[in-house]
Computed example of a mutant assay.
Amino acid sequence: MPNREGAGAFLLRLKGIGPEAASILTNEAFFRDFQNRREVAAYAGLTPSPWQSGGVDNEQGISKSDNGRVRKIMVQLA
């Protein structure tokens, strides 16, 4: 991924990403360096939230923690 200045232009070249989504992702998420896709998902709050009680293991969906604006735009893009 290019630096922050070029990230918006890079995102705009992708199909399905418009100026608003590119701006939000550039300003809210890509100001820092992520080592892998799991770090991006954790930052956006898109990681699973397991629940365990005794011998019962359930998934409760996404955790909805961290940056809500990034999570919202990533869900809309998906």
Results as ranks from 00 to 15, higher is better:
Pro2Leu: 09
Arg38Ala: 14
Leu25Trp: 00
Gln52Leu: 11
Asp57Phe: 15
Val56Asp: 09
Phe34Leu: 04
Ala44His: 00
Arg13His: 08
Ala44Trp: 04
Asn58Ser: 13
Asn36Trp: 03
Gly54Asp: 08
Glu39Ala: 12
Met74Ser: 03
Arg38Cys: 09
Ser65Tyr: 02
Asn27Phe: 04
Gly8Tyr: 04
Asn58Trp: 11
Pro50Thr: 11
Ser65Val: 07
Glu59Val: 04
Ala44Gln: 00
Glu5Ile: 10
Trp51Phe: 15
Ser23Val: 07
Ile17His: 03
Phe31Tyr: 08
Arg69Gly: 07
Pro48Lys: 08
Gly61Ala: 05
Leu46Tyr: 06
Arg69Glu: 11
Ala7Trp: 03
Thr47Leu: 15
Val75Thr: 12
Arg32His: 11
Ile24Phe: 05
Arg71Glu: 07
Asp57Asn: 14
Gln52Tyr: 09
Glu59Gln: 14
Glu39Ser: 10
Ala42Asn: 07
Pro50Ile: 11
Gly8Glu: 14
Arg32Leu: 10
Arg71Ile: 05
Asn67Pro: 08
Leu46Pro: 01
Leu11Val: 08
Glu28Met: 02
Thr47Asn: 09
Ile73Lys: 01
Val70Ile: 12
Leu12Met: 14
Glu28Cys: 03
Leu77Ile: 14
Asp66His: 13
Ala22Val: 01
Arg13Gly: 10
Thr26Leu: 04
Ala9Gly: 13
Ile24Leu: 08
Leu25Asn: 00
Thr26Phe: 04
Gly16Ile: 06
Asn58Ala: 15
Ile73Glu: 05
Phe34Gly: 01
Asn58Ile: 14
Asn36Val: 08
Gln76Ala: 11
Arg71Cys: 04
Ser23Gln: 10
Leu77Ala: 05
Asp57Glu: 13
Pro48Tyr: 12
Val70Asn: 00
Arg4Ile: 08
Met74Glu: 00
Lys64Ile: 08
Ala21Tyr: 10
Val70His: 03
Asn3Asp: 15
Lys15Phe: 10
Asn67Met: 05
Phe31Glu: 12
Gly18Ile: 04
Leu14Arg: 06
Phe30Tyr: 09
Glu59Phe: 09
Leu25His: 00
Arg4Gly: 01
Phe10Leu: 05
Leu25Thr: 01
Asp66Gln: 15
Pro19Ala: 13
Arg69Pro: 01
Arg32Lys: 12
Arg38Ile: 08
Glu39Gly: 12
Gly6Phe: 04
Val56Cys: 04
Gly68Asn: 08
Gly45Tyr: 01
Ser53Met: 12
Glu59Ala: 11
Gly68Leu: 14
Pro2Gly: 12
Gly6Ser: 07
Asn36Cys: 08
Gln35Glu: 15
Ser53Trp: 13
Leu12Gly: 02
Ala42Gly: 06
Pro2Arg: 03
Trp51Asp: 09
Lys15Val: 09
Thr26Val: 13
Glu59Ile: 07
Gly54Phe: 06
Ile62Gly: 01
Phe10Gln: 03
